[in-house]
Computed example of a mutant assay.
Amino acid sequence: MSKSENKVASYAIIGFGSIGKALAKAFARKGIKVSVATTRQPESFASAAAAIGPEIIPTTLAEAVKADVIFLAVRFESHADVAKALPSWQGKTIVDVTNAYGVPSEKMGGQPSARFVAQAFTDGKLVKGFNHLVAAILDQDPAVHGGRRVVFLTSDDTAAAAEIGALAETLGFAPVKLGGLSEGGLLVQAHGNTWGKLIFQDMVKFD
């Protein structure tokens, strides 16, 4: 096995609001290290990170984007600012946790929001996921009633979807892949002032 195949992926969460913290807790529950960053200096949220667990590493945006897998847990309007942190996102997987509720379709050229976000992250692989649950639910242990809480994943890159599916399993969730961004993706994205059919559906899978 080559060194690259043997390499353990590194993870980062951009955004440390209620969703970012809920994601950080999922990593901490499994003892997996994850960097967290915002546009603020890491000292400003270091105590909140420490309260979740030693696996949560506060850092700068410039450092966080060095990770292999980056969870985009910012306001939809802020995704372009994050994208400017690197000229190319080649070799990186971006998990789009944003919700474009209230954003007119014309502002995104009539595209699904995840595809619009994907365009900002030049050369990166984008997976839409972990966005359909409210923070209070995402915050909870995904082991429920003897099953696992479902997270929906959609991507135009099947390898990236498989990678995030495996990570979701490691974090204790049951990943359900919905296909490409323009097909299944529409079920988990806001459309102007309406929500996709699967948004807020709190489902549990029994193996």
Rank of each mutant, 00 (worst) to 15 (best):
F45I: 15
A159C: 00
L138A: 08
A26K: 10
A100H: 00
L133E: 00
S105N: 09
V36A: 11
A64Y: 05
W89Q: 10
A12W: 03
I164R: 01
A100V: 11
A62I: 07
D157E: 04
A26W: 06
I94S: 03
M1Q: 07
F76P: 00
G179E: 04
I52S: 04
K177H: 13
A49F: 04
T38G: 12
V8K: 14
P54D: 13
L138N: 01
S182F: 12
S88L: 02
H191F: 03
I32S: 07
A174D: 06
G180S: 14
A12L: 10
F152Q: 04
A114R: 01
A48F: 05
L72C: 11
A12G: 08
A114Y: 04
S44E: 14
L133W: 08
W89G: 09
V150M: 02
K3E: 15
R115T: 12
A100T: 02
S78K: 12
A118S: 14
I57T: 14
V8M: 14
A24V: 11
G15T: 08
G53L: 11
V95E: 03
A166R: 11
E55M: 15
A114W: 02
Y11N: 05
G20Y: 12
D156E: 09
F27D: 09
R29A: 15
A83W: 07
R75V: 09
Q140K: 15
V117N: 00
P42V: 10
A160Q: 01
Q111S: 07
N99D: 09
M1L: 05
G102H: 04
I32E: 13
P87C: 01
R40H: 14
A22T: 07
N193R: 14
Q111F: 01
P87K: 13
S88R: 06
G91A: 11
Q111C: 03
G15A: 10
T154K: 01
A24L: 13
A190N: 11
G20H: 11
I32W: 02
I57H: 12
D141Y: 04
K66C: 10
V8S: 13
Q111K: 15
I94F: 00
R75Y: 14
A67K: 03
Q189C: 11
E169G: 14
S4C: 07
E43D: 15
V34R: 03
R75A: 15
T154W: 03
S4A: 13
G192C: 12
Q140P: 01
G102S: 06
E55A: 15
G109Y: 02
F16I: 05
P175W: 02
I137A: 07
E169N: 12
